[in-house]
Write a protein that binds this DNA or RNA. Structure first.
Length: 392
DNA sequence: TCTGGGGTCCTAGGACCC
DNA sequence: TCTGGGGTCCTAGGACCC
């Protein structure tokens, strides 16, 4: 999908069409998540601090993200994908691989299928999408980038080499800033340059696995099949506070809020987590993580909070905290609401169930432990913009 | 107005087991 | 009797992606 978040906002707010628009954080520490092509034209990029984006583009309209809305539209986009083939591998909310090799029997060409998908998304949802077609996943992805905005590109097997070698190395999937720096030291600028480097040279800089992997990509070799959906491997909640949290009280209150949100998301997914991870970023941006794996999965906020506090105690000090994150992984499926607590404190268990149900309907903010109330809630724990997760 | 939030995968080291 | 080989699980950090 092209500028997915921005285009969904434009569906709901037509006055945003034709103007430079970005979806992103509008607070002191906001960054851009998605930018319209009008904004990109003057240098606005995703992951850019909103302040810098505003400097580059003073008339930029910045809209705070409405993730639930994007999630709804994503479901509809994926329904269209799956109307073409069941072999759909989602990559994110707005991007997927479709294996259409089996459809050749029906005498439809990949280009016809691609155009059908684009037309359907446009007519049913009113959103622009781009399609890349190739015989491997990563070339198809690169082709879709080349097709943007609102286009389609086919890279035939015969011209694949030529297409690839002209690209800058950082266009390759998996080459980010760190890898790029290593490649530049070797004088590699284009994918064509990369293809000529001996594997031993590359492996010395990047390690054997990444070295051989990148060489294969440069040669257009990518045996990875399209693998339809496998469930999430981790679920996490994190927040960068507009002002650093100072003092254990504030940090613990924020962690309690995270525990509640995480519990709600686990419950919705019908999952319990055997591993709980805490992430702490300090004012100087150093980030530490601590994790614990338990013999049994947990999903209740009180249990999550208890483990979170324990992990927090391993991160010594009273340094100001910029970001707190809490996540669960090593999932086990729970029998929906019958999950047992760590201790079998029945009253607590039932209370947790009741709170979870109210929060499901009215949002996390609707019920909170007393210690989360009456604080300066803008920065600690409960977020002001915390809307209910459904439309009730 | 300087650095989000949600993920996946990889690496390296250590504990532990047979 | 001073040190093997194979394997699993876990932790912490980092790179990368959208």
């Amino acid at each position: 999908m092209d500028s997915f978040f921005v285009e969904v906002e434009r569906l709901d707010r037509p006055e945003l069409r034709g103007r430079p628009v970005a979806v992103g954080g509008v607070g002191r520490r906001g960054v851009i998540a998605s930018a319209s092509y009008e904004a990109r034209a003057v240098g606005v990029r995703s992951a850019q601090p909103t302040g810098i984006a505003m400097r580059l583009c003073p008339n930029l309209v910045v809209v705070p993200p409405a993730h639930n809305r994007y999630g709804e539209m994503s479901v509809r986009v994926f329904d269209i994908f799956r109307s073409v083939t069941p072999l759909v591998e989602g990559l994110s909310l707005d991007e997927a691989f479709l294996d259409v090799s089996g459809l050749r029997r029906h005498l439809v060409s990949p280009v016809e299928i691609g155009e059908l998908v684009r037309k359907t998304i446009k007519s049913v949802l009113g959103l622009p999408a781009s399609v890349g077609i190739a015989s491997t996943k990563f070339v198809a992805k690169l082709a879709s980038e080349a097709a943007k905005p609102d286009g389609l590109k086919l890279v035939r097997a015969e011209s694949q080499q030529e297409f690839l070698h002209a690209l800058p190395v950082e266009a390759l999937w998996g080459v980010g800033p760190a890898t790029l720096a290593g490649l530049q030291k070797l004088g590699i600028v284009s994918v064509g340059d990369l293809a000529l480097v001996p594997e031993a040279t590359l492996s010395r800089t990047l390690g054997p696995n990444q070295g051989s992997h990148l060489l294969a990509l440069a040669a257009g070799i990518d045996p990875r099949p399209v693998t339809p959906e496998s469930g999430a491997k981790s679920i996490s909640v994190e927040e960068t506070y507009s002002r650093d949290l100072i003092g254990r009280d504030l940090i613990e209150a924020a962690l309690l809020a995270h525990s509640q949100q995480l519990a709600m998301r686990l419950r919705r997914a019908g999952l319990g987590a055997r591993t709980v991870s805490l992430k702490v970023r300090f004012a100087d941006f150093t980030t530490v993580t601590r994790a614990r794996t338990m013999p049994h999965a947990i999903s209740q906020s009180r249990d999550l909070y208890r483990v979170a506090l324990d992990l927090l105690s391993q991160v010594a000090g009273d340094d100001p905290v910029r970001l707190l994150g809490l996540g669960g992984s090593s999932f086990e499926e729970t029998a929906s609401s019958g999950q047992m607590s760590i201790d079998s404190d029945d009253a607590w268990h039932r209370l947790g169930e009741a709170v979870a149900q109210v929060q499901e309907r009215f949002g996390v903010k609707s019920v909170a432990p007393a210690r989360l109330l009456g604080r300066d809630s803008a920065d600690a724990g409960v977020r002001e913009d915390d809307r209910p997760d459904d439309e009730s």
